[in-house]
Design a protein around this nucleic acid. Structure first.
Length: 261
DNA sequence: ATGGCGAATGCTATTCGA
């Protein structure tokens, strides 16, 4: 099973990119973030015409998450969950579903703006709620993959200029401690299971030629539960779509899972 | 220290993202 995550920064603008990338990547599951459209505007039929069914939780303007699943895979409708159940939140940031016993979670972590702000406090509260919910989910679904835009660069290796970024939003000790709390649940960072090129990132600012200079961060991740991690045979960042016309500022991350039936 | 870019919106200016 090939799974992936991609923050598309508006599905309306990036619809054709998603369709083109699905056609060339042949992923089985694609988790999307920042749909930026209400559910009635979701291009369900267009994606279905290209062989993918959709589950999503959207809202106007901001946030919004989805999961695209190839037509031949069985999704148990009863397992679909939107948002963190115990965390009342108008912002649509989480959707989960189960495919053949594999729990797939698509998550758009809060940005946080800057340490000390209200938005940062919300980010930490959201992370606490996510942690507690996932601890519970793992008891029900030992095979669980958490894919998404984490808005956290977990290590200095994940930052183009660690000195310039020190203590800032996305790399602060509080955020990294929250990432480590997820690791404490047994999760494995799929990307770091394999040898990787240095300075591999998943996001580059639109400004100041950041992509051309590879001035990026690795903030999009695939965490795999202890029962799932041993099945992972590869994890890579696909930079190609970031070079396309009118790109998202994020690149997709892909992991392959070798699962026997 | 600021802005740069891009998307969305009661749109010709503002907010947010990261």
């Amino acid at each position: 099973m090939k799974i992936a995550t991609w923050n598309v920064n508006s599905l309306k603008v990036r619809q054709q990119h998603v369709i083109d990338w699905l056609a060339e990547s042949h992923v089985d599951v694609l988790c999307l973030q920042e749909l930026k459209l209400p559910d009635e505007k979701f291009p369900r039929a267009e994606l279905e015409a290209h062989g993918y069914r959709s589950w999503f939780a959207g809202q106007k303007t901001y946030n919004g998450v989805g999961i695209l699943v190839r037509g031949n895979l069985f999704v148990d409708e009863a397992t679909v969950v939107r948002n963190i159940p115990a965390f009342d939140d108008p912002q649509q940031r989480v959707i989960a579903l189960t495919i053949d016993g594999v729990r797939i979670v698509s998550a758009y972590f809060p940005n946080g703006q800057a340490p000390g702000t209200d938005k940062f406090a919300y980010k930490l509260a959201w992370l606490n709620a996510l942690h507690d919910w996932l601890a519970d989910e793992l008891t029900r679904y030992p095979k669980l993959a958490l894919l998404g835009d984490y808005n956290i660069a977990p290590d200095d290796r994940d930052v183009h200029d660690p000195k310039a970024w020190e203590g800032q939003n996305l790399v602060s000790p509080e955020e990294r401690a929250q990432f480590e709390r997820l690791i404490g649940l047994g999760f494995v960072d799929a990307f770091r299971q394999f040898e990787q090129p240095e300075k591999t990132f998943t996001w580059w600012d639109y400004r100041m030629f950041a992509f051309r200079r590879n001035a990026g961060l690795r903030i999009d991740h695939i965490l795999l539960s202890p029962a799932l991690a041993p099945h992972c045979t590869s994890c890579t960042v696909d930079k190609a779509p970031r070079k396309w016309e009118q790109p998202s500022d994020h690149a997709p991350v892909v992991a392959e899972l070798a699962l026997s039936a």
